[in-house]
C-alpha cells in the first residue's frame, strides 16, 4: 500500500506541476523533490508557464496527447480525436469525470497524470480494505493506461519542452526530465 500511495503522491505532484500555474508552495516542493532544480523568480515562472504550457507562441509545447499522436487527413495534428475520446471513456469507467475549471480536453497531461494518481489511490484503498482482487484490477488499469495513453507521447512532449532556453524555463525542463524518468520507471516496473 505504501508503494501505491507514494506513487499516487508523485503523480499528484506532477499533475500539479504541469496543470497549475506555479505558486511559492509548489516551488518549495519542487526544490525538495526534484534533484538539481534551481528556483527562479515567481513572476518569470508564471510567464514561463504560460509560454510553455498554455501558449500560444513559438515556445508552446501543447500538453495534449492528441497533438502528438493524431494522424490527420491534412497532415496537421488535431486536438481530440478517437484517442482523447477513449481516455475520457476510461475516466468514466473509473468513476470520475473532469471537474469544472479543468481543461475540457481529456488528454491534457495534468488530467492523465491525475488519473494515474486516482488509479494508484484506488489501489491503495483496496489494499487497505484487504480486497486484493480489486487491488489487482486497479493495478491492471494503471498498466493499460500507462502503456496505451500516457507513455506513447510523453518523450515527444518532453523533447519539445526541453528545446528552450533561459532560467525560468530550466525549472520546467528539470520537471519534465524528472517526469519522464519517473514514468519510464513506472512503465518498466509494470512491464
Amino acid at each position: 500500500m505504501e508503494t501505491s500511495l507514494a506513487r499516487a503522491s508523485l503523480y499528484n505532484f506532477l499533475a500539479a506541476a504541469f496543470g497549475d500555474p506555479p505558486t511559492p508552495q509548489m516551488m518549495e516542493a519542487w526544490v525538495k523533490t526534484v534533484p538539481g532544480l534551481r528556483p527562479a523568480p515567481l513572476d518569470e515562472m508564471s510567464q514561463a508557464y504560460t509560454r510553455l504550457l498554455v501558449g500560444p507562441g513559438a515556445d508552446y509545447a501543447p500538453p495534449y496527447a492528441s497533438l502528438y499522436l493524431n494522424p490527420s487527413s491534412n497532415g496537421k495534428p488535431q486536438l481530440w480525436g478517437a484517442a482523447a475520446a477513449a481516455v475520457e471513456a476510461l475516466y468514466g469507467e473509473a468513476g470520475v469525470e473532469i471537474a469544472p475549471g479543468q481543461p475540457r480536453v481529456p488528454d491534457h497531461l495534468a488530467l492523465e497524470l491525475q488519473f494515474m494518481q486516482h488509479l494508484c489511490a484506488r489501489e491503495a484503498d483496496a489494499e487497505v480494505r484487504g480486497d486484493s482482487a480489486q487491488a489487482v484490477e486497479w493495478r491492471e488499469r494503471q498498466r493499460a493506461f500507462l502503456r496505451d495513453h500516457l507513455w506513447p507521447w510523453l518523450p515527444q512532449f518532453v523533447a519539445r519542452l526541453s528545446n528552450t532556453q533561459d532560467e525560468a524555463r530550466a525549472v520546467y525542463r528539470a520537471l519534465a526530465a524528472f517526469m519522464l524518468a519517473f514514468v519510464q520507471s513506472e512503465v518498466a516496473d509494470h512491464g
Binding site: E2, L5, D125
Partner: peptide, 17 residues
C-alpha cells in the same frame, strides 16, 4: 503521502472503505 491520497479518495466520495 497517504494523507494526500486518501483525501483524494475521500473527495471522490466513492466506497470510502
Amino acid at each position: 503521502s497517504a494523507g494526500a491520497a486518501v483525501a483524494f479518495v475521500t473527495a471522490l466520495n466513492t466506497e470510502p472503505g
